[in-house]
Design a protein around this nucleic acid. Sequence first.
DNA 1: CCGGGGTATTTCGTGGTGCGGAATAGTTTT
DNA 2: AAAACTATTCCGCACCACGAAATACCCCGG
Lengths: 261, 261
Amino acid sequence: MAKGNDPYAVLPVAKAMQVFAYVTSQAHDVTLTEVVQALGMPKTTVFRYLQTLSAAGFFAHNVVQDRYGVGERFRELARMDAVYHSLRSTAQGEMDGLVGGFRETVNLAVLADDEVVYVDIREAARSQRFQARIGHRHPVHSTSLGKAIAAFLPVEAVERLVCTEFEQRTYRTLTDARTFRRHVEEARRRGFAMESGENEDGVTCVGVPILDDKGYPIAAVSLSAPDNRMQVLADRAAEALQDAARRITASLPSISLHGSV
Amino acid sequence: MAKGNDPYAVLPVAKAMQVFAYVTSQAHDVTLTEVVQALGMPKTTVFRYLQTLSAAGFFAHNVVQDRYGVGERFRELARMDAVYHSLRSTAQGEMDGLVGGFRETVNLAVLADDEVVYVDIREAARSQRFQARIGHRHPVHSTSLGKAIAAFLPVEAVERLVCTEFEQRTYRTLTDARTFRRHVEEARRRGFAMESGENEDGVTCVGVPILDDKGYPIAAVSLSAPDNRMQVLADRAAEALQDAARRITASLPSISLHGSV
DNA sequence: CCGGGGTATTTCGTGGTGCGGAATAGTTTT
DNA sequence: AAAACTATTCCGCACCACGAAATACCCCGG
């Protein structure tokens, strides 16, 4: 059973994951003894794992018939991963296409905790100074990515965003909610957002939202380039990004995370 | 937080699940230090969990950029759960309806390891002697559930089934592959399967497959009753079961497990 | 009403192991 | 070349995960 001679394996965790996999793969809710018999582990041990996993919300312990099943916490995570996974994999080809066409950096980002989080980045082999990294966060108000997403968010969500203080990243950064709202309005009208040296001196970005099947902006793609080079590219880039975004939207599955609660 | 003073909580497992949840909920692949900072755990500890979870296949360790993401093992489990969960929840109402209409026991089952596994059972308040229990397994060849599923399985899958020895559960149990095939053929033609005292003396069952959007039989519903009572019910039951199965199929999501590999 | 076989909990003492600080190695940035 | 950042490895000790066995809780059948 592949005891896993991995010197860094934490045995309780590894064994708990076996239990996890077993319970999850059964079509029915299981009992303690069933797991014990299936996995050949001591009853006490399995009992503790089931308790722990239930306490963490990954399992649901049906107390009346003493059965354990998959919990909502797990399903939430699974849905999230499904969306993000398909987003990244369908976006991949489009991003490569854009980099190939423009020879400039292309970014993919989502919104998390009212910040823009970079999820994937393809950079043209040129100067990679000042580029963001995967996982890094930037403010919504200073990026084309943020403005593009905000443009298609429900109004109340945008209003929540403008509550926070606007960090001034460059001398061009919008620090005032009024101007920010105007930019967002414009982005909504045009279908794409722009930002010039508001996030990083000397670089201009064009950003386009990626909408799910319900029209909710789950992410955004952007192309960023030095100000001078972008002047020539801007129009073509906006077009190309919008096309790419449409295609990504089209091949996304229809598991919305933002159901009308 | 919530240190969870649950006396049975296994700390390594609980902490590993925190890591699990964090990594899974990020849209991007994460680094060790990112997790450490986000969760405030010691680096060594998180490192070990990431290693363990990767070794178990729940995470995928991208070695070139030292990032951890969700692994395919997790996705498989998630898909499986999604299908089973929606199966059970959409079947629920239909089963209740059937029990209400016929006042006889209604079963829901899937195929696993070439056996019929009971996933949900609603029994009329009458004699509940001899009923199967959730999680119990019965042979394919002796149950209407099994025959119903087999009837819509690809031929090669059915041939694999008949390879195994046919356990003789009652004196009426089909023990010969030839007869079994004939029954399966007939079930396919009629759209429902029958079984009389072949699994349990004195009880007769009508079973109907639940097909996914690709026509693959992911489960079956059956109604079982004492032989004498079933004689009157059989025709109506077959009709009602088929209607129910159709409705269940219709409200199933389209995540097929049995993609044409 | 009283067993009996099946569950799930609880207890408890021990040995193994998970822990995390600190040292190391490896990589990218300046 | 050095600095600043990563990820890994080492190591000794406290602790806590372990599992056998005892207990408590059923649900059935007599």
